[in-house]
Simulated assay, not measured.
Amino acid sequence: MIKPLTHFPEATNNAVDSNEFLVVENLRKTYLSPDGGETIVLDNINLTIGENEYISIIGHSGCGKSTLLKIIAGLERLTSGSVRLEGNEIRKPGAERMMVFQHYSLLPWLTVRGNIRLAVDEVLEHVPPKEKRRIVDEHLGMVNLMSAADKYPDQLSGGMKQRVGIARALAIRPKMLLMDEPFGALDALTRGKLQRQVLDIWESHRQAVVMVTHDVDEALYMSDRIIMMTNGPAANIGEIVEVPFPHPRNLQEMRKSREYYELRNYILNFLDQHFSSDE
């Protein structure tokens, strides 16, 4: 029985976690405008994430969600502030932070096994070949793709392609998984199945996950906390909401609870209040 929420978190721009695995401090991101001016994308972002937390970032289009994720990945440079993983400043991409994109980014001339093995060879170069094969097979099994191991990307459905991308990211044993709307291009049935599969993997192999999503139900189902962004430009963290449901999660049981809908409506109201007609 889940204890009902008595209140929702107050607005905050700072989440404190004693683990301090990932620390984002006073982050600011700007771009130069064509007229020589400056456009502020993100302003005064402060966030701390624990090493086993599943975090979702939600907000309207243009609020800098993906930009923040890319800065954590090292794919974009911040303008000021800092992002530290285990106390080390993030300045470039690294194998300890793997990213899964909405579009599958598979190499079409490699099989499913080959796409995963390429990443393993690149990052785990000192691991013996037999162990590399075991790692690839283990992660193919995690995402139920052993029967498709020798197929090429153009022989796969969208859901299967995304599972390859997730297996490839996990196979190199990153400390943090970053996902930019990983289920956004999938149909509703496939999306639900893959959400459950990813959650099953995470619940049995805990690590830090940061996921960008537009889907409130997805964020509630999968996350420990939900980072709600204000609108851009100069977007920041409007509120951080704790999701009270314990793991492992059962979506049907969650949807029977009053607090699921209270929390869902609370998030939707926040997004509605921060909606702007010029997006």
Rank of each mutant, 00 (worst) to 15 (best):
M142F: 11
V112H: 09
R163S: 08
L118Q: 09
P93H: 07
M146V: 09
A73G: 15
P108N: 07
G74M: 06
T67E: 01
L156K: 07
V136L: 08
V120K: 13
F183I: 09
M160D: 03
A119I: 11
P153W: 00
R173K: 15
L75E: 06
V83A: 04
A169K: 05
H126I: 12
T79P: 09
G141I: 03
V112P: 11
L78N: 00
D121N: 15
V83I: 10
I166T: 02
M176P: 14
G74L: 10
L124S: 07
E122K: 13
S82N: 10
G74W: 02
I72S: 03
E181D: 14
G165S: 14
V143M: 14
L177K: 13
K92W: 02
R134M: 04
L186E: 04
I72C: 09
S105L: 13
E131K: 15
K92I: 00
K151D: 09
G114T: 01
L106G: 05
M176D: 03
T67I: 08
S105D: 12
L75T: 01
G59E: 12
R173G: 01
E181Q: 10
E89A: 10
Q162R: 03
I172C: 11
L68Y: 01
Q155G: 00
R163Q: 08
A169D: 03
E122L: 15
F101T: 09
L186Q: 11
E86I: 00
V123C: 14
I166N: 09
K161G: 07
I72P: 14
Q155L: 02
A95I: 01
Q155T: 00
L170Y: 00
I90F: 03
G159A: 01
M179E: 03
R77N: 14
M142K: 13
L186V: 06
P182I: 08
L140C: 06
H139R: 06
A149Q: 14
K132W: 08
G158H: 05
G64Q: 07
N144P: 05
M146W: 01
D137Y: 02
M176A: 01
K130G: 03
A171F: 06
G74K: 09
G158F: 06
S61N: 11
A185C: 03
K92C: 09
K92N: 07
T79L: 10
W109I: 01
L156D: 01
P108C: 06
T111V: 06
S157P: 15
T79R: 10
L145K: 05
R91V: 04
D180K: 13
Q162L: 05
G165F: 05
K70V: 07
M160F: 04
G74F: 04
E138H: 13
L170Q: 01
N88A: 11
P182D: 05
R113T: 02
L69H: 04
P153I: 00
Y104S: 10
N144K: 14
G81Y: 06
M160A: 02
A119E: 08
E96I: 00
P153G: 01
R133H: 11
L107C: 10
G64I: 03
R91H: 11
L156I: 01
